[in-house]
C-alpha cells in the first residue's frame, strides 16, 4: 500500500463570491500525499489552508482542479464524480480547530456513531471507542456529554472519532490549538502512528512548530499557493 498515493490534488483553486467581493482563496494548489505519509501544512492565517483541506475533504467543492483519493478521481472542479458521502463515510477522518461533537451524544457515543454508520456492531464499536478514548486519555469522560468536557477533552474525543473508522485519509485543521503542548505532541504522534502503522495519508494544518519533527514532509501555503518547504530536522 505504501508509496501509492492516498491524496493527490491537481491545480485546485477556489474563488469565493463574485465581482467586487471576489476572493481567490486557493490557486493552483497541487499536493500529493502517499499512504503512510504524514504531512504538515503551514502558513499564515487567511492563506487558504482550511479552504484546501475542506476541498480535499469533499465538503467544500473547489472552483477548479481535481481531487484524487486512493487513485480515484473524486472531484473534477465543482463536480462530484462519485458518492461523496460514501467517501466521507469510509475513507476520511476529520478533526477541526473547534471540536465538532454532537451535543446530545456522550463522548463514547460520538466515537461509536462513526463506526455504527459504517456497519460496525454496537458491542465491537463500543469496545473500540473505549480503547481510543483510553489512548487519548479521556476514558474517564466516556459517559459525559460534550458540554461537560473541557475544550481539550472535546478535541481529544474528536480525534478519537476521526481515527475510529481507520480511514485511509485523515485531515486535521489545527487540531492541537486547544491542547497544551504535551497533549498536542501526543496527538501529533498519534497521527504519525496511524500513518505509519495503518498506511493512512494524513494532512495536518498546524501553527505548532515544536512538533514538526513528527512529519514526513512539510508544505507551506501562502496567498492560496502551496509550496514544498524544507524540513527543519
Amino acid at each position: 500500500m505504501n508509496d501509492s498515493l492516498a491524496i493527490a490534488t491537481e491545480g485546485l483553486s477556489k474563488i469565493y463570491g463574485s465581482g467586487n467581493t471576489e476572493v481567490v482563496a486557493m490557486q493552483d494548489a497541487s499536493l500529493q500525499v502517499k499512504h503512510g505519509e504524514v504531512v504538515a501544512l503551514l502558513g499564515p492565517s487567511g492563506s487558504g489552508k482550511s479552504t484546501f483541506l475542506t476541498a480535499v475533504g469533499l465538503i467544500n467543492p473547489p472552483t477548479a482542479g481535481q481531487v484524487i483519493i486512493n487513485g480515484e478521481l473524486v472531484m473534477d472542479g465543482p463536480r462530484a464524480m462519485t458518492s461523496l458521502r460514501r467517501f466521507r463515510r469510509r475513507e476520511i477522518g476529520y478533526v477541526f480547530q473547534k471540536s465538532n461533537l454532537i451535543p446530545f451524544l456522550t463522548a463514547v457515543e460520538n466515537v461509536q456513531i462513526v463506526m455504527e454508520i459504517n456497519g460496525v456492531g454496537a458491542g465491537a464499536g463500543r469496545r473500540r471507542a473505549m480503547e481510543l478514548l483510553d489512548e487519548l486519555g479521556v476514558r474517564d469522560r466516556a459517559a459525559n456529554l460534550p458540554s461537560m468536557l473541557s475544550g481539550g477533552q472535546q478535541q481529544r474525543v474528536a480525534v478519537a472519532r476521526a481515527l475510529a473508522n481507520q480511514p485511509s485519509i485523515i485531515l486535521a485543521d489545527e487540531p492541537t490549538a486547544a491542547l497544551d503542548s504535551g497533549r498536542g505532541r501526543q496527538v501529533m504522534d498519534l497521527f504519525a502512528q496511524v500513518a505509519h502503522e495503518h498506511g493512512a495519508g494524513v494532512i495536518v494544518v498546524t501553527h505548532d512548530h515544536r512538533a514538526l519533527d513528527v512529519f514526513d514532509s512539510l508544505y507551506e501555503m501562502e496567498d492560496g499557493l502551496i509550496k514544498r518547504s524544507e524540513h527543519p530536522a
Binding site: F87, R88, Y94, N100, I102, I117
Partner: peptide, 16 residues
Amino acid sequence: IHTIALLKLIGAPNSR
C-alpha cells in the same frame, strides 16, 4: 443544523 451537517460530514446516510 450543526448536528445534521456533522452527520453528513461523517457520511451518515440521509435515511439516518
